[in-house]
Amino acid sequence: MHNSKKVLTPQEATVDMNPMLDVVFILLIFFIVTASFNRETALELNRADNTISTIQPKISPLFTINKQNQVYLNTRLITLENINVNIARLAAVSEINSISLRAHPLSEHNTLVAVLNAIKEQTDVPVSLGETLH
């Protein structure tokens, strides 16, 4: 018998990955082409306009002229020159429905007319006239 040892020399083992990559890309293309992409159906909504309306409270300011010809707006003493400013301030905060004007029977007519003119310069809301008892 011949006793011989085979000497194994290390060989470099290489694996060619190109055919596997080709197969992966072919499968990927196949699945992309055959897949059906369905769009989800959704309900159509009728949306309102983007304008947002805010609800403003409605007020009715009360102007009072006493017998000394002093003008009051809701129990606060004001001057004739400040009537426009006060009405503008009230209109900015809330909507003015109507304006009440009460004059004492002994007050001067000029004061009443000046208050009416100042109110009408600022707004076109209706003004109701009355008289005070005190």
Rank of each mutant, 00 (worst) to 15 (best):
T64K: 08
H109D: 11
N86M: 07
N74L: 01
L62G: 00
S60L: 00
Y72T: 05
R89P: 00
A91C: 02
V93T: 11
Y72V: 06
K67V: 06
K67C: 01
E95I: 08
K67Q: 10
M1N: 11
L116H: 04
I96D: 03
G130H: 04
F31Q: 04
I26H: 12
A13E: 10
I78Q: 05
E95G: 01
S128Q: 14
N86W: 01
V71W: 01
N18F: 11
K58H: 06
N110I: 07
I65S: 10
S36Q: 15
V115E: 02
G130D: 08
Y72G: 05
R89L: 12
S53M: 06
P57G: 03
N66Q: 00
A42L: 15
A91H: 05
S36I: 15
H104M: 02
P105Q: 06
V115Y: 04
L73V: 00
L112P: 03
S98A: 11
P10D: 12
N46V: 12
G130M: 05
N110Q: 14
N74S: 01
S98L: 06
L8D: 10
I96S: 03
P105E: 05
N110Y: 09
L62H: 03
V93K: 12
K120A: 08
V24N: 06
I52Q: 10
Q11K: 14
R89A: 15
D49M: 02
N46S: 07
E121F: 05
F37D: 09
A103N: 11
A13Y: 10
T51W: 01
V33H: 01
T34A: 04
L43R: 11
A114K: 13
V7K: 14
N82E: 14
N117W: 00
Q11L: 13
D16K: 14
A35H: 12
N110S: 15
V125D: 00
I87K: 06
I99V: 13
S100R: 04
F63N: 12
E121S: 12
P10H: 10
T51K: 12
L101P: 04
D124K: 14
A114M: 09
K120L: 03
I32Q: 01
I59N: 01
A103R: 10
L62M: 01
T132E: 05
N18Q: 15
Q122E: 09
H109S: 12
R76K: 14
N18C: 01
D124R: 11
E95F: 07
V115I: 03
H134R: 06
K6F: 13
Y72W: 13
S100D: 10
N84Q: 10
Q122C: 02
S53K: 13
L45D: 02
R102M: 09
V24T: 10
R47L: 05
G130Q: 03
T111S: 06
E40P: 03
F63E: 07
F63I: 08
V33W: 03
L45M: 05
F25M: 13
A114D: 10
Q11S: 13
A103D: 03
I65Y: 09
A92H: 06
L21R: 12
H134C: 00
D22T: 13
Y72P: 02
G130I: 04
L129D: 07
Q70R: 07
P126W: 07
R76P: 00
A88K: 11
I96E: 03
T64A: 06
L73M: 05
R102E: 14
